[in-house]
């Protein structure tokens, strides 16, 4: 009798878990799979957000992408930004994680502070940094008052400086995320390994290279992949910070897609570009993940 009631309870619990999984799957299908399929369909049409109908135009949108200079510029910029930001955010993240990997209360508070950039909305990040980086902003005020520069720096006013500024801001945002990922990984490393290596005479640098870096390899895979994907689809921070300017120098591919869809009314073409970006992101993410996973095994 007891075993029958346990069996019934197990079935009910199992059913409950299946229900949760089914709900998650339903949400995934509704909010991810269906929109992607709709976008794929749209990419083969001349759909316009203001017109009710659309015509099937085959691969014409994809052919247009080959000769679209503005698209090429945004893709190159987005890729460069993704690469630079991923490297910086991960280096900063692991450095912060090593520094904050202590159990004292003050370090626990600092960990929360380190994660803040990731918690704040991209729009707010954009507004705050815009206030900091403008001609009369906080940074220029501080630099001139400290006599570190004679004249305010044109942080957002020239193409190269604006690109650098966007990179710094996005790296700052992502550093919060990477710090937390690496901290979690560091806390799983048994302290005995460091103790044993100390007895064997290993220096701190050797411990970092031979123990820390190797054992956080799975975290590196997650952190690098998510950092790359986040930057490849970046929209909010750049829109508020530079509006893609000056002269489109900081226009990301995601911004270009939105501009095509809702300013140029080329919804079908925007869908094709979005499909291209999805494919590019998938290829990059898969390549990086498989490379880093192989590295995890090698280490």
């Amino acid at each position: 009798m007891k075993s029958r009631s346990r069996w019934l309870r197990d079935v009910r619990n199992d059913l409950g878990l299946r229900l949760i999984a089914a709900t998650a799957l339903l949400l995934y299908v509704i909010f991810i799979v269906v929109p992607v399929l709709m976008s794929l369909h749209s990419s083969f049409t001349d759909e316009n957000p203001l017109q009710s109908g659309s015509n099937f135009i085959g691969l014409a949108n994809y052919r247009t992408m080959v000769h679209d200079g503005e698209l090429h510029a945004t893709v190159l910029y987005t890729l460069a930004l993704a690469l630079a930001v991923t490297v910086v955010a991960n280096v900063v993240g692991i450095a912060f994680a090593v520094l904050l990997n202590r159990s004292k209360l003050s370090y626990r508070v600092l960990r929360t502070v380190a994660f803040l950039p990731q918690v704040v909305s991209g729009v707010i990040v954009g507004f705050v940094w815009k206030t900091i980086l403008t001609e009369d902003g906080l940074l220029n005020n501080a630099l001139t008052r400290l006599h570190l520069v004679k004249e305010p720096v044109d942080w957002l006013g020239t193409p190269h400086m604006a690109q650098l500024s966007v990179g710094i801001v996005v790296a700052w945002v992502l550093s919060g995320f990477t710090t937390v990922v690496y901290l979690a990984a560091l806390q799983n490393i048994p302290p005995e390994l460091y103790d044993a290596s100390s007895i064997d005479g290993a220096t701190s640098r050797q411990q970092f290279r031979m123990i820390t870096l190797r054992l956080v390899a799975p975290a590196t895979t997650i952190s690098v992949t998510i950092s790359l994907i986040t930057v490849l689809k970046l929209y909010d921070v750049i829109t508020v910070l530079t509006s893609g300017g000056p002269a489109n120098a900081t226009e990301s591919t995601a911004q270009y897609i939105v501009k095509l869809a809702f300013t140029s009314d080329r919804f079908g073409y925007a869908s094709a570009v979005a499909m291209g970006l999805l494919l590019l992101s998938a290829v990059i993410a898969l390549s990086v993940t498989s490379f880093l996973r192989r590295r995890e095994i090698d280490l």
């Binding site: 403008t134 009369d136 044109d154 006013g157």
Partner: peptide, 16 residues
């Protein structure tokens, strides 16, 4: 134009 004109927001330009 003022120095760093592309680094000045529209709102700041009014104030200045």
């Amino acid at each position: 134009f003022e120095k760093g004109a592309l680094n000045v927001s529209y709102a700041d330009s009014i104030t200045q």
